[in-house]
Design a protein around this nucleic acid. Structure first.
Lengths: 196, 196
DNA sequence: CCAAACATAGACCGATCGGTCAATAAAAAA
DNA sequence: TTTTTTATTGACCGATCGGTCTATGTTTGG
């Protein structure tokens, strides 16, 4: 048997480029021409490697989800004060979503575009949301054990609220160029924890 | 001078149909064929009346914004307890965004699709956000005057947080079919007010 | 050296996109 | 009625869409 030449590109690397393009422009507004230009590969290679546009997007979505989710988990799982971790993470998000060219969250953008129409797509989105929720829930549970949170607050509800704030912040950061708004949102979100 | 026949349709009525379609499917995914079918008018009439697809969408966006914003203002401006108004509004939102076919918020969907790339579009989105923010701010200010809110809380921050929760809830409701999640979000959001 | 197996570039496909235009119908002013 | 203005319809336009396929390397096993 014979073997041809190896791929001249790293699939994950070009996938990351595609992800960034989808992230900034959305699914429908991103054409194949732009994609192959940003990815730096020919169209045949694209289809041979990723199937089609929808599958490429799904893979990009999963890559994004893994990247973001693992980051949230890591940030919230650090040693030390669990509430301190939450505060640090939210302040970072605030800074990121205050930048004028902030593209928000690819997951959020995608939720807006597909809804439950595409089951496979919806599954990825739901899974990601639950990952974020669990990360916050774990942090809050640890905070309570450490006496950082009162015993009356419903931690599951609180975690879901933070997930919503997380997404809302990203969404608003996409359109709002005034840094004061994200700052307010995060400040108020953190103030909750002081009296909870 | 002579005058021809009047329009055989009500522009605002067909605009509302277009709005619903954009709402459910997003801008790019909604084609002219679908639009003229849903609106029940010919293509020439569509272009004569609304300009082009983008302008049609802008008009739909403004119609939606007016509808929603005026509703929020009305709900939060009712007589009686200001915090009671906030609670009632959030419970209503919870119910709406728990329904499986919830399409979320057209403004949120649009934020995800255009960002600041289109200045005119971004202006409508920002204006809407500020309307919602002001409605909440007014309610909170009234609540403080009535002694329903402590004097330490920053009301501007709180209003912006509620705006973010408002949008986040709508976004998540689009993809999440489990009613427990919106319920949790709203419960936790209302719990904030108890100790603020 | 040859041939099988691979990857590449880019021409090419039908379908659909947003947008325009000519032909027809209809109604009011003269 | 005749004329003028308007609305409606549906054919039509070039451009672009996502997707395929052929022609051309290029590399490795025989």
């Amino acid at each position: 048997m014979a073997r041809g030449p190896d791929k001249q590109f790293d699939p994950e690397e070009v996938l990351r480029e595609a992800m960034c393009l989808f992230w900034a422009k959305g699914y429908a507004a991103t054409g194949l021409a732009e994609l192959q230009s940003a990815m730096g590969i020919g169209r045949k290679s694209l289809y041979d490697t990723f199937g089609n546009k929808r599958q490429l997007f799904l893979k990009a979505l999963q890559l994004y989800s893994e990247t973001v989710a693992s980051r949230v988990v890591t940030e919230l799982g650090r040693k030390g004060s669990a509430l301190g971790n939450v505060r640090r993470l939210l302040r970072k998000l605030q800074r990121e979503h205050s930048q004028p060219q902030s593209t928000g969250c690819l997951l959020g953008v995608s939720m807006a575009q597909f809804r439950t129409a595409d089951p496979e797509m919806a599954a990825v989105l739901r899974l990601h949301l639950s990952h974020v929720e669990e990360a916050y829930y774990g942090a809050f549970k640890r905070a309570r054990a450490a006496g950082e949170l009162g015993s009356t607050t419903n931690l599951r509800d609180l975690a879901r609220l933070y997930m919503a704030i997380h997404q809302g912040l990203a969404l608003i950061g996409r359109v709002q160029d005034v840094p004061a708004v994200p700052r307010s949102i995060v400040s108020a979100a953190l103030a909750i924890l002081e009296s909870a």
